[in-house]
């Protein structure tokens, strides 16, 4: 794929795409300096369930400006109401900045890791009560109504994506119930996605003009993310495990 499409060309393609979408977004978008991509991210009409016609995913560009990841993480904290604790070992982290360094070559990269929203999620397989679920559109969630806090999903997750709530929680966001004794993780901002909005991290990055994370429907060949993952070779963490994550990484 990359063999026939040089990177420069692909980038240019994306730039063209950006201009096209900006134009479609209308004058207001340009006027307020907001870059927003709704392609594929539509609000589902009232009363309709999530559908397997969609497969939400993300593409993370590991070569992006490292400060982008702080933007994304603080947007997540603000949106979902986690963070601010004083116990690093027990405080929940829905998304975190991971740095890797190749032991032999010394090459380094820094990028965020969160729930990878696997197509074959081990957390869903092992959950004794069925509290770990994968929605029809591929978003992996914890049903805190029936989570008993056994933490087996945390044992099973290859990405350490989940946190156990070790302390009482107060002042939760109305759209994001969180409670002591249950397990939680990135929801891909399911409440926003259902309303046709972008996940908070992606939205915050777009607001500062960064395309470090692209969100969209991997099942829709015309979506920005689908075009991007077909233009570049992307990798998913521990692909060898066969869990088919929905989060792709470019540049590692």
């Amino acid at each position: 794929m990359t063999k026939t499409t040089p990177t420069a060309l692909a980038d240019e393609k994306i730039d063209t795409e950006r201009r096209r979408l900006l134009a479609a977004g209308g004058a207001v978008a340009v006027a307020t300096g907001i870059i927003l991509y709704g392609a594929g991210a539509g609000a589902r009409p009232k009363g309709q369930p999530a559908s397997s016609a969609q497969r939400w995913g993300m593409l993370i560009d590991t070569n992006a400006d490292p400060s982008d990841w702080d933007t994304a993480i603080s947007a997540c904290k603000r949106e979902q109401g986690w963070g601010g604790g004083n116990n690093p070992a027990t405080d929940p982290q829905w998304i975190r900045k991971v740095s890797i360094k190749n032991k032999s070559t010394g090459a380094q990269a820094t990028f965020p890791v969160m729930c990878q929203h696997c197509a074959n999620p081990p957390c869903v397989d092992v959950c004794p009560t069925g509290a770990s679920i994968k929605r029809a559109d591929g978003i992996v969630l914890v049903d805190k109504h029936i989570c008993i806090g056994c933490r087996y999903c945390m044992m099973a997750c290859p990405y350490s994506a989940r946190s156990f709530v070790h302390e009482p929680v107060h002042n939760q966001k109305p759209h994001m119930p969180r409670g002591m004794g249950t397990v939680e993780s990135c929801t891909m901002c399911v409440h926003r996605v259902d309303a046709g909005l972008l996940p908070a991290c992606v939205n915050a990055l777009n607001k500062k003009g960064s395309k470090a994370i692209i969100f969209g429907d991997l099942n829709n060949p015309d979506s920005e993310i689908s075009r991007a993952v077909s233009a570049h070779v992307t990798r998913r963490i521990r692909e060898d495990l066969g869990v088919e994550p929905g989060v792709h990484y470019k540049g590692i």
């Binding site: 004794p128 069925g130 056994c150």
Partner: peptide
Amino acid sequence: DLGRPDRIDVAMLEQNFKSIFA
């Protein structure tokens, strides 16, 4: 040692048969 031992009834009533725990 569960996070929510008060929900032991849930463990009895709601079961995911793919889980070795169940």
